[in-house]
Write a protein that binds this DNA or RNA. Structure first.
Lengths: 108, 108
DNA sequence: TTTTTGCGCAAGCAAATGCTTGCATGTATA
DNA sequence: TATACATGCAAGCATTTGCTTGCGCAAAAA
């Protein structure tokens, strides 16, 4: 049912973006992450599960700890989506963008 | 209450990403957009409202029609988030990435 | 071995999300 | 003017989301 875990949805939540930020350069265990937030450990655990399910985090068991490591390659999918529209805010192509804009104000 | 309309959340929904795709190069009125989907016109209307609220779409009234134009500059915010992690999947920096990865497997 | 620590599981809940149908209204068109 | 079209508004509803608390269990520490 909830196989809808895609990366776009995963990064939609600000807490999850914070978690990504937190472990991007330094892997942390679950409780160390949860300590940084005001919400309960369990809430963070659920966020992490979502990140795991969509491939943005990998968990390595180490004794009783779960070390969360960032696997951010999946963000490339989002980048691909964004990049195709980069033309619309990129300075060097602003002229083109506005041109297309004006050209299509009226529908066919 | 629902001023939580941020761009990340807006693009989390596949239908809304489709809408963005649809009007990126060609502005369309609301019904023309809704016709492309299986869901009701009203459902699409709500999606468009969300896109308007976060600044990704601008509506120009034209007679009885509402022309939806893409204003994708706001996507730059997402790009900024993504770009800081580009190093983690960029080939030329893979070595560095893996190095940092290994280095931080154990928490401090 | 007893206790503490790290974490998962499960139930419960309020709010948000995505969708629908029905009705209202302004704007073109016949 | 009567009618068809483009759209908004509102109510209702099922599902998902984000969160909480309480319990259980295995691993580490005392």
């Amino acid at each position: 049912m909830e196989t809808r875990r895609d990366v776009f949805q995963a990064i939609a939540d600000p807490t999850r973006r914070d978690i990504i930020n937190m472990i991007a350069h330094k892997s942390l265990n679950l409780n160390a992450i949860a300590d940084q937030f005001d919400v309960s450990r369990q809430a963070i655990s659920l966020h992490i599960r979502i990140l795991v399910e969509c491939g943005l985090i990998e968990i390595k068991k180490q004794g009783r700890e779960r070390i969360c490591e960032a696997r951010l390659q999946k963000l490339a999918e989002v980048q691909r989506f964004i990049q195709q529209y980069e033309v619309f805010w990129n300075n060097k192509l602003d002229a083109l963008g506005e041109f297309l804009d004006r050209k299509n104000t009226s529908i066919s």
